[in-house]
Write a protein that binds this DNA or RNA. Structure first.
Lengths: 124, 124
DNA sequence: AGAAATATACGCATTTTGCGAACTTTAGAT
DNA sequence: ATCTAAAGTTCGCAAAATGCGTATATTTCT
């Protein structure tokens, strides 16, 4: 049951018919998705996420953030006391031995940590 | 065709059989997903994203970021409520991909940065 | 080369889908 | 309050897609 489809649709004040038309499917078909009577194909759920401007993960309740930001990799360091800007690049610096790390270094650092954890997880 | 399933699976050096077993489906069924011969159900693709530690959007090529972080940023520095160890050079917690770095990891990280900078300074 | 593991292809029984039509409910106008 | 059109719900059925097992092909070992 994809309750989030209904939530988003209603928040936008759209009708079943409207979404069905936009997707090119029958009204009853789309209604089935919301009620859980039917499941959309992968292609359809992608179109729905596009139309509703959210992520598939949100529609499937795998994420609770309705905002989908398909931007490229974003690195963010945030201070807890500061207001966090979702799209800002760096809001504070990370220093090692008193020297500020560059973006390049941060990217390498992330790669390093990921690789290290991967190795630890599955050996060698 | 969910080529990213194959990419992630191979990067983890897993066999078709292994993933099929983890998902509780037949090997031929899972193979169909990778080849595009079949489509996984929404439930199955969620399980696959869980298993492969990524987002459904990435698997569906709706996002190019393989890292799935429902809420956390990739790097985050936060001040712990209590400073337990006075002598610790760490006064904040550092998280990568939402996972707090251990002291061990932080030490390795510092070593990594120092070594990298040393190499850059002297060449090779 | 041979064995074992891994990957790919396919037939078929079963399940699931999408559609249209019928039906019920809601919202707006008079 | 009544009427009416739009919105929402339910359901049968033909058509399509799924999953499994089996067979075949390929790779990876020794």
């Amino acid at each position: 049951m994809l309750k989030r489809l209904a939530e988003l649709r209603k928040s936008k004040k759209w009708s079943l018919q409207y979404i069905a038309d936009r997707l090119g499917i029958a009204k009853s078909t789309y209604a089935g998705y919301e009620s859980g009577y039917r499941e959309p194909s992968l292609e359809s759920i992608k179109k729905l996420a596009d139309l509703l401007e959210t992520s598939v993960d949100f529609l499937l309740e795998r994420s609770d953030d309705p905002i989908f930001n398909p931007k490229e990799e974003k690195i963010k360091i945030s201070h807890p006391l500061e207001l966090t800007d979702v799209n800002s690049w760096v809001t504070t610096e990370l220093t090692v031995d008193g020297k500020i790390m560059s973006l390049d270094e941060l990217q390498q650092f992330i790669a390093f940590v990921r690789a290290k954890r991967e190795i630890e997880r599955k050996g060698i």
